[in-house]
Design a protein around this nucleic acid. Structure first.
Lengths: 213, 213
DNA sequence: GTCTATATCACGATAGAC
DNA sequence: GTCTATCGTGATATAGAC
């Protein structure tokens, strides 16, 4: 390596600014996070941020985009290495999404918690990318359904409810606790796939193919 | 009735202010909603709001409290009229919670979407009430588990994931569409109770009591 | 690339007339 | 109970020195 200056107390790079800003926005929300807050967290004055970004909106937009990028990358990585068995495939995707929320910086978490009331200009700019990630999951669910692996009366709603459950974990799950993200993914997929109601109590509606549980 | 003055264009009552404020806060978030915004929506000037509330924080706190109050009332009403069958009871509770989100003003919806990054003072003031609502659900789940109706490896996590799924509906469900809230509650409980994985694909783990699905 | 200084504006809140 | 007028503060953003 020709230089090692960058290894200690780096100058305020775009990445460093975004890292800190994303954490603040996750904690306090976008509107309540000031440029002075971000600058202070980075260790510079507010005016210096404008050398790296044109506006506060641009910082927020970059964070939301990065959040999606993390999720998309995680999804594609599973697709590239997956087995064909339905439940296992879903488990890997759920684990990957949880990884996006907890393991790759605050970008995805900030995206999930703050997107829905972002300023309209930002919201509209991000929606297409967000839709494209959602389309990946919709495609996955379509495939599972066509295989006969999925039995929901409405797969879109089943997917959205699963998503809501996954995304809510950032509000209550502590990845440093006794349960690992693998454990959590297992529990979520178990619940989604098999249900948690006792078979005894519920010999109801779909008393079909003499199967499991 | 002795007077009917109050039936048209009422003076800015506390309730009317809170109604409008809750809707704005649901849409834009607390920090991005100004007293001028609220006043404009009510049809008065900002200074007039201070005749009814001491501060913006007080308005927000009142909205968050009312959101919980709506949920608690809905929960208690189900408890007071419920049958004993586990799945039906859960269905009624899920329907009641969805009703709180969609049918009783924007209070509960605003609570769910904006609470997590409320200013610390407000957050701390609301947490106890929020915990008491959560305790009601925890109690319900404990009862279901002791009956043998619930089969989750961790009932708290099962409950939190269900909650995440329910609460996410305010971001994507349109109660004016083809599906009713009853339909939605059915789908969510079906998914939670029975799972949506095909029995064929998943004769796995818990191949227990020759039951349903 | 970061700083000081500042322009401009919107915010929450108050005072006091009506 | 609502208004006009305003205070003090902190917001985003810019200008220009270093």
């Amino acid at each position: 390596m020709t230089t090692n200056l960058e290894s200690e107390s780096p100058p305020a790079s775009r990445t460093r600014i975004l890292d800190r800003a994303a954490q603040l926005i996750l904690d306090k929300g976008f509107a309540a996070t000031s440029m002075r807050d971000i600058a202070s967290s980075v260790g510079v004055k507010a005016a210096s941020l404008y050398h790296h970004f044109a506006s506060k909106d641009e910082i927020f937009t970059a964070i939301l985009e990065r959040g999606i990028e993390v999720m998309v990358t995680a999804f594609e990585q599973v697709e590239a290495t997956s087995t064909s068995e339905a439940e296992t495939l879903l488990r890997e995707h759920v684990r990957a999404h949880l990884g996006s929320l907890f393991e790759f910086g605050p970008y995805t978490a900030a995206h999930v918690t703050t997107f829905h009331n972002a300023p309209p200009v930002i919201y509209d700019a991000i929606v297409p990318r967000r839709d494209s990630y959602e389309a990946m999951w919709a495609g996955l669910f379509d495939r599972l359904e066509q295989q006969g692996s999925l039995n929901a009366s409405d797969t879109s709603i089943a997917r959205l409810v699963l998503f809501g459950g996954m995304n809510s974990t950032i509000e209550w799950f502590d990845p440093a606790g006794v349960l690992t993200l693998d454990d959590l993914a297992d529990m979520i997929v178990d619940q989604f796939w098999h249900g948690v109601g006792s078979a005894n109590a519920a010999h109801s509606r779909r008393a079909a193919s003499g199967g499991a549980r």
